[in-house]
Design a protein around this nucleic acid. Sequence first.
RNA 1: GCCACCUUAGCUCAGUCGGUAGAGCACUUCACUCGUAAUGAAGGGGUCGCGAGUUCGAUUCUCGCAGGUGGCUCCA
Length: 698
Amino acid sequence: MSQTIRITVDGEPREVTEGTTGFDLFDGRREIVAQRVDGELRDLSRTVGDGEAIESVEITSQDGLNILRHSATHVLAQAVQEVRPDARLGIGPFITDGFYYDFGVDEPFTPEDLKEIKKRMQRIVKQGQRFVRRSVSEDEARREEATQPFKLELIGLKGHAGDDEESVEVGGSGLTMYDNVDPKTGDTVWSDLCRGPHLPSTRLIGNGFDLLRTAAAYWRGDEHNPQLQRIYGTAWPTKDELKAYQHRLAEAAKRDHRRLGVELDLFSFPDEIGSGLPVFHPKGGIIRREMENYSRRRHEEAGYDFVYTPHITKAHLYEVSGHLEWYKDGMFPPLHVDEELDAEGNVKRQGQDYYLKPMNCPMHNLIYASRARSYRDLPLRLFEFGTVYRYEKSGVIHGLTRARGFTQDDAHIYTTREQMKDELTSVLNFVLDLLKDYGLDDFYLELSTKDPKKYVGTDEVWEEATNTLREVAEASGLELVPDPEGAAFYGPKISVQARDAIGRTWQMSTLQLDFNLPERFGLEYTAADGTQQRPVMIHRALFGSIERFFGVLLEHYAGAFPLWLAPEQVVGIPVADEYAPYLEDVAARMRAVGLRASVDASDDRMPKKIRTHSKQKVPVMLIAGEEDRSAGAVSFRFRDGSQCNGVPVDDAVAWLRALADARVQVSSVSDAVGAPGVEAPARAVAAARAAEVSHPAE
RNA sequence: GCCACCUUAGCUCAGUCGGUAGAGCACUUCACUCGUAAUGAAGGGGUCGCGAGUUCGAUUCUCGCAGGUGGCUCCA
């Protein structure tokens, strides 16, 4: 006799007969692809038990999307094994926006393979195979996966490592297999070791999936392990959502700093110089110089002392610092100089190894140590735009964000242990404040703590440093994310992560505490009581690398820099040749107050000129014809096409100067009129008001 | 460093089943003098990434190298 059990479904109490499944509960609701039972995701085919709280999982929810993608990756693996029966299965999880599956194959996949695999996936999807869950014992699993070495390894891990290595294959309790069953014949056509849950049917994958690319990946993420071939894909509930995703990717690609660098003529990486070594063109140079100048000014105001150090040094310095011991692989190989040989080739005079510097700190330490220091000198803040060279592996070089030569806005602060906390607090505030001026304002902090395999110094010192950083970070009120084992060998760090305009996060500034280098360099100061004490060192880069920060800002602004950073701030567009001299005059007045202004006196027609400079993301175009000339005025055109016409030249000059000084974005007349602390000409205010009427939503 | 793919004019990209190449934009010149995202015409520009091999002949096929792209590993 079937018994009645009590459950809740999406918060509503219900009574159902024993043996009821998720399918029964959500009958007819195709958008529900799984059930969450007391917080645990399960297939709809599972029966519910007395007292359980069941929630529906819609395909459009995050859990639903994950299940969709996880099922899609099974379909991928099935298709791959049709094309390559020898393919050994690795792991196949869902990831943000998609999925991948790793395969051990003798020959890597070709683009043709990918096409064929996709075709077969479509066939499997259409067929509407059911995913059927089956619990197995470890022995059964081993028997079924006898020809699958990677799966056997996972089963073994499950046995030994417990739940530490929880994964989509063998997480949670017990082992399960998922059979893909042909709905017509009831035959199992494919099986995979998997914890699930899955969609009820492959049909739900529909036509919202695509295969994106292939890549090699080390088995279990370890470069000592064999490489598997990974296929990446994406899957969405509908074709429209897939298209929207592809559109998002295309939009992100448009802001790629490497592309914008070419389009806007900002920088390049000449092959002749070498991989990862950029040159800045004049326009990129202007942006960079503005970035640096403002930073310099702020550092001066904040009590930093400016120093300069060479790019190259004898090996001994990096032996003292420990870099040669810890990071030799990341350094360019040495230049061996001054060696003399006799006629027989024997060494007459020992040579010297010189290294390009990968970090500035040892040199700053030498400046500290150049004379006796008193507690009255501290905190001593040494600042440098220090160019460093790191031998990044060839495969990791990526535009300006990962280069082999770059310039750090590097400071080393030497403090007493007592001052340390106050100093860290003010440094963190200084950093956040300055980043905001460059237009980034969405931050969180990461606290990187000791890597037990890679550190120097005593546990007590690490603990004190870590606790101090944590207290300072917590006091900032920002979100703090732990990064266990992420610290450098010499000390823990706080890093500032910034979210850009399209939501990506970038590691920007780092504050690192270092109890180690002062020790190695024997740094001391005389305390008030006459004793010799050891200072604490704070490493701090704000941009991290200027090149990288440049790249991040370029992508953040999609090339449309705020007025103060824009390489061309103002371009005059005469309605006809006749008005060019008038605009030259206006531009000269702009230049006289330090604005970057020019006139486009080319043969192009006016709309063509507007197009040209729009594509170059020039913030302000000043247009003048007879109307403006006779009124002693100019007409503004902003990036978004908004205008304000007939602004008297005096007002225009003063207004633009003020907007540049305010370091605001100026892409529309409303931006310009709304800039805090800047008084806009009456004409502009009226134009902005008119614009608001036509776009009330703004 | 590993795997795959890519490299043709300044840029974006066609093309040659092996017989030394073409478009659009950009550039130069000429005409047009124009009020808010492309006026028209003419012209210049390429040892087809570099080096070897196969071939009567290689930009095309093979190998090596360099650079790039996407991943993996790494990122003091």
